[in-house]
Design a protein around this nucleic acid. Structure first.
Length: 597
RNA sequence: GGUCCAGUAGCUCAGUUGGAUUAGAGCAAUAGCCUUCUAAGCUAUGGGUCCCAGGUUCGAAUCCUGGCUGGAUCACCA
């Protein structure tokens, strides 16, 4: 039982004994004592004044005396206004450290039979262009949230829904046919997704040229937009694809394969993966039967022209189209179908979609429509809605070339990491492979931490001109602290010292040391909270706080050089445990830690 | 126009289930600390009408109302 819950139960007892009142434990607020006051934990007594009918100071003193008497690890207390500051003794804190050390996968809940089953969909790229910075945020969030949910003891299924069909891919296909001269990834040495993306841009350029020509000939601008022959051809291509035209399908397959091979490389570099990949070319017709059944059941309605709609006015929204006049599916229809299949096939308890906040409306509607259709799990779909990544110039636009390409960005990060590392020259004795592994970890650590430390739901700013820092509140700073700890431990062992499994609990420890243990004690709560909030940022900020405190400790206290053996052992155990938590917390963010850097 | 989200230091961000007459980090700036466990570190200094105005109460960056600013969205697109 944690010290907080012990105190809470005793506070309830105290209020009962002293003031004859039963209180809810929600009225009990225990927080970390502020730095500038003496103590470890603080009880806020204001809520109890209406029971005690005494001044805040008197109430706090009464409660303080009661708690000190009843809880033996409370050494002393002091009162500042309505705040009761409790001093917890060293023995207790050291026992907390020892417990953490003795716990395998400290802070993680094990996967047990009957665990909650969660599916998380993320990435979901289009196959007409390479991944960019926006996708990076999506992928890192999806992967990290999956890790965090697993750490909370959930069974997690990661899925990707690849949008491999539609007018956008036809545009790339058409441009490639028209202007490509038979180029392939092999013939050009260009990564498949980038090659296809090049023709997506090419299409847009040629489209604009033709449109302007039409306008110059006197055509109305709105009309010209629709009459560009390239667009008409692309639309024709999509019709052929849907009709199963052999040539179009073969070209589609070839170019999609190029892109998917490219994505695999990017995913591997990013360090994300999936348990199952869906393709829209297989799922885009799904949901039609469900919608037709809804129509038959009278929960949906049909217009004269044939289209099928959901009336959401009762929920304060509009009408939503689910089947077109010609009976074909729209995106919403497909999502209805795939959600149904997933809940049925996997018996999942919850489904999280990692999708940008531009689709908030879509997911709101999806849940409502599923509810209308009578699926009781309609409220088990959760939209993990994240904010846009903005550049100083504003939003990224792929066709205007203002995107930050994912592959380029990652490569640049690795180059920067390599240069910095070589400048500092700390990897002497490492082989080329070992060194490259460190550069990669540091580069990706910097990028991932930069993105994940920001609250997912907020928009974030990325300035490509100012490369991501390696100092301060950054991934490399955290990795560095880990490497530092490993170095101390290694030197201690090399010089013949043993690092015991447990620290002696009869020691005088400093305020800084007890603060570090309190941070360690809080790690499990952080994992729970990050899981509830689906927010890797909470883990990131926690690890940063921990590391910042540790570096101050490291600077001010000898560890392996401490003369007092028990104290030295304690500090080695403490350092080792903090290293474990850094590694563990970073793994929740999908970030690796190097032994040296 | 309707709906949703955000607004905290020059910049990037924490802090938001209401708590300490003193709102935190990092970057950038300035000044220090490497014959001692990794200086990708540590220390110090300066930097704020927590968008504005009201309200709720012992107490508000945090909750409520109204406004301002920015973003997203409201397709027989995805």
């Amino acid at each position: 039982m944690s010290i907080e819950s012990i105190i809470k139960s005793k506070v309830i007892e105290a209020i009962k004994v002293c003031y004859g009142q039963d209180i809810d434990d929600k009225t009990i607020q225990i927080q970390k004592t502020r730095r500038e006051f003496e103590g470890d934990l603080t009880l806020v007594v204001f809520p109890f004044l209406r029971f005690s009918k005494k001044s805040p100071e008197d109430t706090a003193n009464e409660l303080g005396n009661f708690l000190k008497e009843k809880i033996n690890c409370i050494e002393d207390f002091n009162v500042v206004k309505g705040f009761l500051n409790l001093l917890i003794d060293n023995t207790y804190w050291i026992s907390v450290l020892n417990q953490a050390v003795a716990t395998k996968n400290y802070g993680f809940k094990a996967l047990e039979p009957g665990a909650k089953k969660v599916m998380i969909e993320y990435s979901s790229p289009n196959t007409n262009k390479p991944l960019h910075l926006g996708h990076i945020r999506n992928n890192l969030l999806g992967y990290s949230v999956a890790q965090i949910l697993k750490a909370n003891g959930y069974e997690v299924i990661k899925v990707n829904l690849v949008n491999d069909r539609g007018i956008h891919i036809c545009k790339s296909m058409l441009a490639w046919l028209r202007f490509g001269g038979g180029e392939t990834p092999e013939s050009t040495g260009i990564k498949g997704d980038h090659l296809v993306g090049k023709y997506y841009v090419k299409f847009d350029q040629e489209y604009k040229k033709e449109m302007e020509a039409l306008i110059a000939e006197g055509m109305d601008a709105d009309e010209a937009k629709k009459q560009v022959s390239l667009l008409l051809e692309a639309q024709e291509m999509l019709r052929k694809w849907e009709a199963g035209d052999v040539e179009v399908v073969a070209l589609w397959r070839k170019m999609n394969d190029w892109v998917l091979a490219g994505f695999d490389v990017t995913y591997a570099k990013m360090g994300v993966d999936f348990d199952k990949v869906y393709f829209e070319s297989n799922t885009y017709k799904k949901g039609k039967a469900i919608v037709e059944k809804g129509l038959a059941d009278g929960v949906l309605y049909q217009k004269d022209t044939g289209s099928v709609w959901a009336n959401l006015e009762g929920d304060g929204l509009d009408h939503k189209l689910l089947l077109r006049d010609d009976g074909t599916s729209v995106y919403m229809t497909q999502d209805i179908g795939t959600a149904y299949e997933r809940f049925n096939e996997f018996k999942i308890d919850e489904h999280i979609y990692v999708v940008g906040n531009e689709q908030n409306y879509h997911f709101q509607v999806l849940s409502l429509v599923l509810g209308k259709l009578g699926y009781e799990w309609h409220d088990k779909i959760q939209h993990l809605s994240y904010g846009m990544v903005e550049l100083p110039e504003g939003k990224m636009k792929s066709r205007e070339g203002t995107v930050v390409d994912a592959d380029d960005l990652m490569d640049e990060m690795v180059n920067t990491a390599r240069d910095t590392s070589n400048e500092l020259g700390k990897l002497e004795g490492y082989s080329l492979e070992e060194a490259e592994d460190v550069y990669n970890k540091v580069a990706m650590g910097a990028l991932k931490y930069f993105i994940l430390k920001v609250d997912p739901k907020k928009n974030m700013m990325f300035n490509p001109k100012e490369s991501i820092d390696f100092n301060g509140n950054t991934g490399p700073f955290i990795q560095y602290t880990y490497a530092r700890i490993q170095s101390v431990l290694k030197k201690a062992i090399d010089s013949g010292m043993e690092i015991p499994d447990l620290a002696s609990d009869k020691l005088e420890i400093s305020v800084k040391e007890s603060m570090l243990i309190q941070l360690i004690a809080n790690y499990p709560n952080i994992i729970t909270e990050a899981g509830d909030a689906t927010s890797p940022a909470q883990v990131a900020n926690y690890v940063y706080d921990l590391v910042k405190e540790y570096n101050q400790f490291y600077h001010d206290f000898p560890i392996a050089k401490e003369e007092n053996v028990d104290l030295r052992f304690f500090r080695l155990v403490l350092s080792k445990q903090i290293g474990e938590i850094i590694k563990s917390g970073m793994s929740l963010l999908g970030i690796g830690v190097p032994e040296r850097m």
